[in-house]
Computed example of a mutant assay.
Amino acid sequence: MSTKIESKKVSIKNSTQAVFEFLNDFNNIKALLPTDKISDWESTVDACSFKIQNAAIIPLVKKSTTPHSKIDIVGGEKAPFPFTLDIFINEKGANETEAYLFFEGDINMFLKMMVVKPLTALFDYMADGLKVELEK
């Protein structure tokens, strides 16, 4: 059964190019995560993995990109279930960008009850973090 989670949409005072370039380097993803809830961080330009507190290791692998508008991510081989995570980047005007994350995962009903709320909170946290990082 497919589970879909969309983060909140954040408005960022920066260009779509700057937002895309930041997200296109997976070494930067760490800056978007709650440092008190993750450990075992590893990253390259095209992949990263981390352990969420009291949960599984989450490996993220860049699948494809559409310059300045979308980054398609898939779960790596050690993911607890198959999933995709797309990051959408939309131009809202001169030097203003809207961004959000869209997750779709194949999660069984038992696991779904436990992970939907924390995943929703994580993706909203990442969206907020993106705004903070790119408006410094």
Rank of each mutant, 00 (worst) to 15 (best):
I89K: 10
F22V: 01
L33Q: 09
S64Y: 00
S49T: 06
L60R: 11
L101I: 11
P82T: 12
L23D: 03
S64C: 04
G76Q: 08
N95M: 15
E98R: 13
F102T: 11
L23E: 02
I52K: 04
F50Q: 03
Q17L: 03
V116Y: 09
I58G: 02
S39A: 09
K51V: 05
L111I: 13
V61P: 01
Y100H: 15
E96T: 15
Q53D: 06
T97H: 11
Y100W: 09
N54F: 01
G75Q: 03
G105Q: 04
F22N: 11
F20K: 10
A55C: 00
T16L: 01
V10D: 04
V61Q: 06
A18I: 02
F110N: 13
N14H: 12
H68W: 06
K13P: 00
D36G: 00
I87P: 01
C48W: 07
L111H: 08
G93L: 10
F22D: 10
P67E: 06
E21K: 15
S49K: 15
K9P: 04
D72A: 14
Q17Y: 05
T66Q: 11
E104Y: 08
V45W: 00
M113A: 15
N108C: 05
P82N: 15
T44F: 00
A55E: 00
V10W: 01
W41R: 02
V45C: 01
T44V: 00
K9L: 07
Q53K: 13
L111M: 14
K63A: 08
T35L: 09
F110E: 11
K92V: 15
K112G: 06
V116F: 08
S43Y: 02
N24T: 02
E21F: 07
N24C: 06
K8P: 05
K8D: 08
D36F: 07
S49P: 00
P59M: 03
A79W: 07
E96N: 13
Q53H: 04
N28M: 04
D86W: 12
V45Y: 02
Y100G: 08
I73H: 02
K70E: 13
V116N: 12
D25L: 08
K9C: 11
N27Q: 14
I107E: 05
V45E: 12
I58E: 04
M114I: 14
V19H: 05
S7N: 08
F103W: 09
E42V: 12
G93A: 11
